[in-house]
Amino acid sequence: MAASGSWKSGSGSSMGLERMSVEQLKAVKEQADLEVNLLQDSLSNIRTATTRLEIASSALNDLSLRPQGNHILVPLTASLYVPATLHDSQHVLVDVGTGYFIEKTMPEGKDYCDRKINLLKSNFDQLVEVASKKKNVADEAGVILQAKLKQLASSS
């Protein structure tokens, strides 16, 4: 692709796109659309993960307010609950992935969740920025492509 490097740079992007042939523009638009879709999927996944962590954080907060020996219904499976008492309200096991569990105190658990949420939010913001740039490129390529096709149609 002749000007594939130039359209990524931003200010000179339209100049680079203008010089491209119809086939190249189609390829650029398809590529940009594909990347936008992938980024949208990633954003959706991050949003879901953030929501899950926020729920976990609020659950920890709720648990820390309950005294040890408090009566609760414990979920032993997804659909079976038994009456029990809270054994240790000061410590929790945190699943950190790949089969590893770390015992943490309540404040440490909350801190872990908050740090993960902040990390995901910063990633989310970065991805939003990248996605909007890619979308602009795709839209620009689409506009130029339409103009070129119209030009070709009128000349023939």
């Binding site: 976990a56 920890l60 029990a84 008492t85 240790d88 929790v92 945190v94």
Partner: peptide
């Protein structure tokens, strides 16, 4: 307790 968070009960 929540996804990825476990606690102990007697």
């Amino acid at each position: 307790v929540s996804e990825g968070i476990y606690s102990q009960a007697r």
